[in-house]
Amino acid sequence: MNELVHARGLVKRYGRKRALDGFDLSVGEGRIFGLIGPNGAGKTTALKALLGLTAYEGELRVLGLDPVRQRQRLMQDVCFIADVAVLPRWLRVNQALDYVAAVHPRFRRERAEGFLATTEIPARARIKTLSKGMITQLHLALIMAIDARLLVLDEPTLGLDILFRKAFYTTLLNDYFDDHRTILVTTHQVEEIEYILTDVVFIDHGRAVLAEPMDTLGERYCQLLARREHLEAARALGPLSEAESFGRHALIFEDVPHDRLAPLGELRTPSISDLFVAKVGGSRK
């Protein structure tokens, strides 16, 4: 597998605070990585390091390049949306297309125009007259028309309503993603992107506390709905977390063989958000 992002022991200090504290990441080609963490965990700092926007200590290669020293070359193959609000308010839609077409050798204008035609965005509108959802659509149209190898999305749907959020990821998956493209996305709304991810990374206090392909997640982690009489036995196996709802106890285990858990109750694969709470929530208490 072609490794697009290779990070080992990344450290980023802001004064005495360590935004990244030994962060590791390995992203293979053709994957969709979800980078998930609480506020201030270092998600944005990690992405900024990958994009050559900040200096760091440690080992980092993106598409085999040094992101700080070879930034311009990197930007030919990497696209990113940093936040919904970053398109300048004075820019017009057609000007945005003109600009990207002139400076980006891999931008295909027809593609962007084709996508915009499916939206309600007027072709010459100034960005300040567009709604937040439309601005994100426009940004997505620009990004999707670039034949990039790695797309980095930092909270791309922040502040959008649910219809736009759904449409955003559906478009990304159907019209953009293929075997040669790789997506790295951070978001708070884990449930909404769970179904599109191939890999998940949890980040907390500047470290990757979990990095797992979705298809093997169920082998390493499982959620046990313990029967009351087996609750103590289950607790003795060292669960990551325990939650009670409607009188049922749900315990999440890491690396405990399924055959030891199966007699104690009903087994299933935890959802990303439950796993996140188990893995990260525990350390925050």
Partner: peptide, 17 residues
């Protein structure tokens, strides 16, 4: 202005030095 309106991240997402 590009830092004030945070559009600098958009400009920097393109291959312009």
């Amino acid at each position: 202005s590009e830092r004030r309106d945070r559009s600098i991240l958009f400009w920097k997402s393109l291959p312009v030095t």
